[in-house]
Amino acid sequence: MKFTRRSRPSRSRRSHIAPDWPARFRVRAEACRHTALQHFYSKGTAAPETPLAETPFAALDLETTGLDPDQHGIVSLGVVPFRLERIHCRQGRYWVVRPRRDLATGSVMIHRLTHARVSDAPDLEEVLAELLASLAGRVVVVHYRGIERRFLRRAVTERWGEPLEFPVVDTMEIEARLHRGVGRSRAVRWFRKFMGGQSVSLRLAASRARYHLPDYAPHHAFTDALASAELLQAQVAHHFSPDTPISKLWC
């Protein structure tokens, strides 16, 4: 069997060119007015060369009423702080909030939250400071940054009129990289062959199953955050090393 080695620029390579996050944080810390944001930015973030084993992480999951930050709102949030070595549930947080936009009936079923539970809940603004405090100083881990980062950004802009930005490690992006293009190792090529060339599902549950992680019931923000944290542990155990610098993974 012959493999031709070709280096080709790919879409996901671009995602590797991440901003200089510590510098960004310093700038933002100077510029922002809201105290919660000042706290958040002044805590800084890991230096790009920090090994994964020493990086403080926080897995984050949002349950929303839909996929579009312009039309839909946040219903619940889960945060699970962890390190590569251990996930600490005790420090985890979970909030239910009242979305400013209509609660579509369809997603109510999905989130297993009743109207009553949600309509009694506080506005996101009331938990935002707490949320940012639990993320401060940590690299946020999500499964599909298209939701978490965008919704949070939008929510902060809407309420405080200021931008929010932070580095994330996207476990879905990592899976996509492994299965769709960049840095194909022999194992990955084999894996693709083994999968019969079919497209690999990148959803959280399917990704977890590839690492023999157990099935968790989806759509609970805390559980999904925990599930993402475990997935990152598994991805690192299989494809990276505790010494890999965080800059390899964040974006």
Binding site: F82, E85, R86, I87, H88, C89, R90, Y211, L213, L226, A229, E230, Q233, A234, A237, H238
Partner: peptide, 11 residues
């Protein structure tokens, strides 16, 4: 007990 649990993955 569940609240105290810590988690780790072993290949």
């Amino acid at each position: 007990v569940a609240g105290d649990v810590e988690v780790a993955y072993f290949r």
